[in-house]
Design a protein around this nucleic acid. Structure first.
Length: 420
DNA sequence: TCTGGGGTCCTAGGACCC
DNA sequence: TCTGGGGTCCTAGGACCC
């Protein structure tokens, strides 16, 4: 028999965590909100049944939730992290190879046992008993197929909370009824492109020609297709590398128009980022600052820009990180002013304005000059609302944002002792 | 009035070096 | 004077995940 992999996935994780600590919430609708209580980031089944979407802004759903007497929580990441560790620890009592894939999911290697169903059932009940968290289990011969199996538990609302895809005939039957867009690794863009060539089910994808997939979609989708056919391309990662980026981003709750105010926020966020670095025993070699106008304001022109600076040495000190962040912010202004193509707002400055020399000596900041630029922008476009980050779920803005935080690299090594 | 905050990987093109 | 190819690094952008 081929090696089997299981995906263990916690149900409505954050909402379930809150329930563990307040059993009276059983069968009651529960939602958990994002950091500044802006969006709904977790929903119990009752809330899903009300038709409330993941990521929906809280203010839009507030009345509906109140009518159904829902319990509403601000997020408590310490609690969820702790509960996650308990779930993983429980899994390690049952399996020798456990890969923590995310805060609420793990892949495990299924040992050579005669009764897989029995083991799945035991997993579901043991995690529930030991931690209070309900989970579902999907089993198959590749990670992607294990994901399909777990998703099948959800879609079919299976009472046993596990599903096993073993043989080829069984697999193809499942995949023929599984939407290609629901496959792990296939998002909105790819499924739209696949629909155009009449690929609707996961099975359809497995029947495409390898070279066509590679040419039209790239290596990533080819791997997914292989995995769906039952050829493993994704290994278990039992000894993960240290993380490569660390991002600290927040939206403002109100409009920011003054450079000084922006700078204060950058300082606060950079210092939080430095704290996070040290807490995780990481050091950074470079740092990126990015700013955005509000994504949701469709009436105002949008502006987004960023700058990456190299740190003089790999470090995690608050002082260095904060100073570098302020440098980077200053550079954004200078860049935005000097480069025609760098943003819609600054694009429209007159040639005379563009010809002015660099506005900012960032070693010796002259904030009045920056304010002058902001005033210029505000005069042209009304109140410019500059936001740090912004928000949105898998929207275009977010895509383009991703690389902006990329340069925040870090490394373990014995360099940990470097702490100027 | 109010719209999250994290991460990873892949690819194309240009600069630069030999 | 003209022409070449290989390699690396960086930037920018796109796609996906939870």
């Amino acid at each position: 028999m081929p090696n089997l992999i299981a995906l263990i996935d916690c149900d409505n994780f954050y909402a379930s965590c809150e329930r563990v600590f307040d059993p009276s919430l059983k069968n009651k609708p529960v939602v958990v909100l994002s950091n500044n209580d802006g969006c709904i980031v977790a929903r119990s089944q009752e809330v899903k049944d009300l038709g409330i979407k993941m990521g929906s802004p809280y203010f839009k759903e507030k009345a509906l939730l109140a009518r159904h007497n829902a319990a509403v929580f601000s997020s408590n990441y310490e609690l969820y992290g702790d509960m996650s560790e308990r779930v993983m620890a429980t899994l390690r009592t049952l399996y020798s190879d456990v890969e923590t894939y995310s805060i609420d999911e793990a892949f495990v290697k299924i040992p050579d046992v005669s009764n897989i169903e029995e083991l799945c059932s035991q997993t579901v009940s043991k995690v529930k008993k030991w931690t209070g968290i309900p989970v579902k289990v999907g089993v198959s011969i590749t990670k992607t197929l294990a994901k399909v199996a777990a998703e099948t538990v959800k879609q079919r609302k299976l009472k046993d909370r596990y599903f096993v895809i073993k043989d080829i005939a069984h697999k193809d039957d499942i995949l023929s009824r599984f939407a290609v867009g629901d496959v792990w690794g296939i998002g909105r863009a790819t499924s739209a492109k696949l629909a155009k060539i009449a690929v609707k089910s996961a099975l359809d994808l497995t029947r495409l020609d390898d070279s066509d997939i590679k040419r039209q979609f790239g290596i990533v989708l080819l791997r997914t297709a292989w995995e769906l056919r039952g050829n493993p391309c994704l290994d278990m990662e039992l000894d993960p590398e240290p993380q490569k980026n660390l991002c600290y981003s927040r939206s403002f709750s109100h409009t920011i128009t003054k450079f000084e105010e922006l700078k204060e926020s950058i300082i606060a966020y950079a210092s939080s980022a430095a704290e996070k670095l040290r807490a995780r025993r990481l050091i950074a070699s470079s740092l990126t600052v990015f700013i955005n106008t509000s994504y949701f304001d469709s009436t105002a022109p949008t502006y987004a820009n960023s700058t990456t600076v190299s740190l003089p040495y790999e470090a995690n000190s608050t002082k260095l990180i904060v100073n570098s962040a302020v440098d980077a912010l200053s550079k954004i202004y200078r860049k935005g002013y000097n480069y025609k193509k760098s943003g819609i707002i600054l694009n429209d400055l007159t040639s005379e304005e563009l010809q002015q020399p660099s506005l900012f000596d960032y070693k010796n900041p002259k904030d009045d000059k920056i304010s002058a630029v902001m005033d210029l922008i505000n005069k042209k476009y009304g109140k410019g609302s500059i936001r740090l980050a912004g928000s949105g779920f898998d929207n275009d803005w977010k895509m383009s944002r991703n690389h902006l935080s990329k340069r925040y690299t870090s490394d373990w090594n014995e360099l940990l002792d470097i702490k100027p």
